[in-house]
């Protein structure tokens, strides 16, 4: 149903489809509010304010290991690196930002020390093995709680939030429905059925 929000779908077609979905209860204000939500895809022109080109490459490669492309796009294509930069630039406190950047440098240093190259330059199986190892260390049952959280935990959290709230994550990977039109409290969950975003 996310194609309702596809700006290329004609307004009349969208209205027709919407009023079908809502069982004829669609009202002018509802329709205009839904169509008013039409926006272009993720801004492609985001100007990075914190991460430099090398850091962007590292982050893009890292978030794609956390949520890779499968039958749907992965985190990098969904714009997660830009989201990470926005959070670092406009949300994080200076010490949190510095802590993240230090963690990023340490991460690349570990890649270089263990595998002879910065993370983005490693081959796919090596990248995957390194990230799986760090995930296992970070989420080990006996890992002590830390404040601030370890770098990898921050990356993973930002990747999950950034991905599943992106247009790709919400509408292609999961399902997003701005106006279901009815409440059905009980239906069979099939293997093909994905979670609501």
């Amino acid at each position: 149903m996310h194609d309702l929000l596809n700006p290329t779908l004609g307004r009349r077609a969208a209205l027709r489809r919407l009023s079908g979905i809502l069982g004829g209860i669609a009202t002018a204000p509802l329709v205009s509010s839904l169509l008013g939500g039409c926006t272009p895809p993720e801004p492609t022109g985001y100007a990075f304010a914190t991460l430099d080109a090398a850091q962007q490459r590292t982050i893009a490669a890292l978030v794609d290991q956390v949520i890779p492309a499968t039958d749907t796009p992965g985190a990098a294509e969904a714009g997660v690196p830009a989201f990470v930069d926005k959070i670092l630039s406009e949300w994080a406190e200076p010490d949190e930002r510095q802590g993240f950047l230090d963690g990023l440098a340490a991460f690349d240093a570990r890649a270089t020390e263990e595998h002879g190259a910065a993370f983005a330059g490693l081959d796919a199986p090596t990248k995957q093995a390194l990230v799986e190892a760090i995930d296992a260390e970070t989420y080990a049952p006996d890992a002590p709680p830390a404040d601030p959280p370890p770098f990898f935990r921050m990356v993973k959290e930002l990747t999950v939030v950034g991905y599943y709230t992106s247009r790709i994550g919400a509408t292609e990977e999961l399902r997003w429905n701005p106006a279901p039109g009815r409440w059905n409290p009980d239906l069979s969950l099939t293997d093909e059925m994905r979670a609501w975003a």
């Binding site: 290991q65 956390v66 499968t70 995930d135 993973k156 939030v161 990977e173 999961l174 994905r194 979670a195």
Partner: peptide, 20 residues
């Protein structure tokens, strides 16, 4: 739903499939 992702172990295809 996906909100459980950042608190659980796992990365890659396995994580993505789980959060689906």
């Amino acid at each position: 739903n996906w909100g459980r992702g950042s608190g659980m172990p796992g990365v890659g295809v396995a994580l993505k499939d789980e959060l689906r």
